[in-house]
Amino acid sequence: MAPVTNSRLIFNSPPGDGPFEPGKTLVVDNSHSIDVDTVALDGGFLLKILFVAPDPYLRGLMVGPGQPALIDVPPFILGESIIAPSVGVVVRSETGDVKVGDHICGALPAQNYVVKPGLEAGLLVIQNQYNIPLSAYLGVAGLAGMTAWMAWKEFIGTAKKGSTVFVSTAAGAVGSFVVQLAKLDGCKVIASTGSADRVAYIKEFGADVAFNYKEESTDEVLDKEGPLDIYWDNVGTKTLDSALAHAATNARFISCGMISAYDTRDATVKNLLQLIAKSITIYGLNVATLIPKWAAEFFTEVPKLVAEGKVKFKEHRFEGLASFDDAFVGTMNGTINGTKAIIVVGSE
């Protein structure tokens, strides 16, 4: 086979304290090629990347040289491929860990082909015994799903029936699964999102009250529908302040993300005294710390729930690495048509 282009999505320019800059922060590099049949594997295996997910946490890795990432993950390296959640298929192998035709998911370089020395920590062979779409392993059956399901198991367990749960960024990949987990436990769910279409969408997933925070006051909605027993926070700042003000005594908060502060670095919260006044417990969520405990149960239960239709998901697919900017901005702004943006990089 003649060499083929091995396109890469590289980290080109740190955005600093400003917003992600399409066409500048990340760029596609088409200068590399690869001979799939002859490239040296040195005892490893060759993956063809099929899908990449432009997850919000990647924004926290776009920092300048010598600066720490905003989360506990190694930052991107200037001029190198970004590392992003991906699914690939093994096209050649010199290791007993994987065989040709196996599908692998995990954090991988965003490029067409990747040589790996072995099945490193964080890379999983997808068993897919329930035959759900492979791209689901980047969403509801992947990192987003693990974030929602594992944290709910760890910090909530089974919620008391009738509890009031508020989920911010509820139409996203994580939030929409949290909505469904809360409904499975018999909770009343309040869901905020950023457009009328996504309000309608998250109602289809079971939210009892859904509103567009850009057009309705979060405080006014929570005044009417609260107090809150559980708050799942994907936003931080003003929305967190509102939740604190409307929390019930002994409420539980799960802090999953602070998307409103990723660009500005301003995570100011004014109502922290409510933690004391209402005996609120707040859990900081780093899913990496939960995976060792919950992974086996997650991969046993969640794909089955998806296959049975008990947990729903919706994707918005983009074509090619060059579409990463659109997919990422849409994910960050909450404007994509679906809970999960998926970039289709290749086919089998």
Rank of each mutant, 00 (worst) to 15 (best):
G309E: 05
G79W: 12
A110K: 03
G106E: 01
F205K: 14
T289Q: 15
D55K: 03
K314Y: 02
G236R: 01
V174K: 00
Q111L: 04
T268V: 10
T38G: 08
E94Y: 12
S323K: 02
I104A: 02
S93A: 12
V199I: 04
A2H: 13
G206Q: 07
G226V: 07
F313G: 01
G18Q: 13
L305H: 09
A322R: 11
F76P: 03
N337A: 14
T164G: 07
G142L: 03
V28A: 07
S33W: 00
Q67C: 04
E215M: 13
A295N: 14
N271T: 13
E308C: 02
T264Q: 10
T331G: 04
A53Y: 02
T335V: 07
D42F: 09
G338M: 00
G226L: 10
D35Y: 04
V39C: 15
T264C: 10
V165I: 10
G186F: 07
F324G: 04
T95G: 08
E308L: 05
V63G: 12
V329S: 01
L61C: 12
C105W: 12
S279Y: 12
I280W: 12
G118W: 02
T164K: 15
W149P: 05
A53W: 01
P133L: 05
A84N: 00
I83T: 05
K188A: 06
S7G: 12
S168Q: 08
D37V: 08
T237H: 13
K188M: 08
A295Y: 15
A296P: 05
G122F: 11
A84H: 00
D229P: 07
D233P: 01
L26E: 10
C256Q: 03
N250S: 14
L272A: 09
I82T: 05
T249D: 12
E204K: 15
S86H: 00
L26C: 10
T164C: 14
G194L: 05
G145N: 11
G122E: 04
A245R: 15
S81A: 14
S135T: 04
F155S: 00
A247D: 06
E308N: 08
L46S: 04
S31R: 11
K304R: 15
G66Y: 11
G175K: 06
N271F: 13
A288M: 13
A210P: 14
K99M: 10
I156S: 09
T237S: 14
G334A: 11
I280L: 11
G284C: 08
K310N: 13
L47I: 10
I282Q: 13
A173Q: 06
P109D: 08
K270V: 05
N333W: 00
E301G: 00
G194M: 02
A288C: 00
G338E: 00
I282D: 00
F299Y: 14
W294M: 07
A261M: 07
G172L: 01
V63P: 14
L290W: 09
R317H: 11
R59F: 08
V209H: 10
P133V: 08
Y137C: 02
D233S: 02
A247L: 09
G122A: 06
D241E: 06
T164R: 15
A170K: 06
V73Y: 11
Q111A: 04
V179G: 07
A277I: 15
M332G: 05
L228W: 04
M332P: 03
V345F: 13
T193P: 02
K116P: 00
I71A: 07
G320H: 05
D55Q: 06
L305I: 02
V36F: 06
V125Y: 07
